[in-house]
Simulated scan of single mutants.
Amino acid sequence: MRHSNASRKRICERHLQLLTELSRALGEKDRYTQAHGYRVARYAMRLATRLGFGHREVWDVGIGGLFHDVGKLALSDQIFTNRETRLPAELKREVRCHPLIGAALLKDIDYLEPVVDLVLFHHEREDGKGYPFGLTGREIPPGAKIISISDCFDAVTTDRPYQKRKSIRAAFEILRNGCRRYFCEDYVETFIEEIEENGIELENGTDPLLADELIRSATAGAGTM
């Protein structure tokens, strides 16, 4: 069924409002998680660009990175206040649901279909021991692999309640040690080259201009469908 231009515009505006509210709600739930999403988005877009991805694919990984943890909106507050390195089994099972929840929150926005898969699969592993489905290397979308690397790097180079940041060199070693088990080796080496040449993302807060740019690009693209 085709919609008129006015109808598409109204739909896009509703989706714009929904995505903006999701981003805001995540910040109210946990400020670190929101800021982490902005940095992961930027790292993911940088890596995708360096790998030669097209403009739409770069945009997809940006939105996917921005909202990769949006499913954590449904998690208990205990998880955000936890200061232990290892979560109890019950909380660990709850955390492993966040890709499924995040994908469910985004799935009804038709023009975000590629992004839904990136959110859903960003914790899958090359060796098939990830979650939620245990996919192996070739089954995992390239964009999800990019977000996984970006996610890991930012997580270990920033302070969290249960873990102090590690040095950039230590983070590179973690990524390299994870190749063929967690991460795509070629992507890891390209990511490291990008960081060595252009540095890390600043930690201080969020970047609302990035979110606005990505979300409005999404709705503008949808308006032409």
Rank of each mutant, 00 (worst) to 15 (best):
K9Y: 11
R10I: 03
R10W: 00
I11E: 06
E13R: 14
R14C: 11
R14W: 07
H15W: 10
L16M: 07
L16I: 02
L16W: 12
L19Y: 02
L19T: 01
T20L: 07
L22S: 01
S23G: 09
R24W: 14
L26G: 02
L26D: 05
L26E: 12
D30Y: 06
Y32G: 04
Y32A: 08
A35M: 10
G37I: 06
Y38T: 14
R39A: 11
R39V: 08
R39Q: 14
V40K: 01
A41S: 13
A41F: 04
A41P: 04
R42S: 04
Y43W: 06
A44V: 03
A44C: 08
R46K: 15
R46C: 02
L47M: 06
L47Y: 03
R50Y: 09
R50M: 05
L51P: 02
F53I: 07
F53T: 04
G54K: 04
G54Q: 05
H55V: 07
R56L: 14
E57W: 12
E57K: 12
V58M: 10
V58I: 15
W59F: 14
D60L: 00
D60M: 00
D60Y: 02
V61L: 08
V61E: 00
V61F: 05
V61K: 00
G62Q: 03
G62S: 09
I63M: 06
I63A: 00
I63R: 01
L66D: 13
L66T: 05
F67K: 00
D69C: 13
K72L: 03
L73I: 15
L73S: 08
S76I: 06
F80C: 04
F80K: 13
F80A: 11
T81F: 13
T81H: 10
N82D: 14
N82W: 01
T85A: 08
R86F: 09
P88R: 01
A89T: 13
A89M: 15
L91D: 14
K92P: 10
R93Y: 05
V95F: 03
V95C: 09
R96E: 12
R96L: 10
R96I: 07
C97V: 03
H98W: 15
H98G: 08
P99G: 11
L100C: 07
L100F: 07
I101H: 09
G102V: 06
G102P: 06
A103N: 07
A103F: 11
A103R: 01
A104R: 12
A104Y: 12
L105A: 07
L106Y: 00
I109H: 10
D110T: 03
Y111W: 15
E113G: 14
V115I: 12
D117K: 13
L118M: 10
V119N: 01
V119R: 01
V119T: 02
V119P: 08
F121K: 00
E124V: 15
E124C: 13
R125S: 02
R125K: 09
R125P: 02
E126W: 11
G128F: 10
K129M: 09
G130E: 09
F133I: 01
G134D: 03
L135D: 01
T136E: 09
R138W: 13
E139V: 14
E139A: 11
I140W: 00
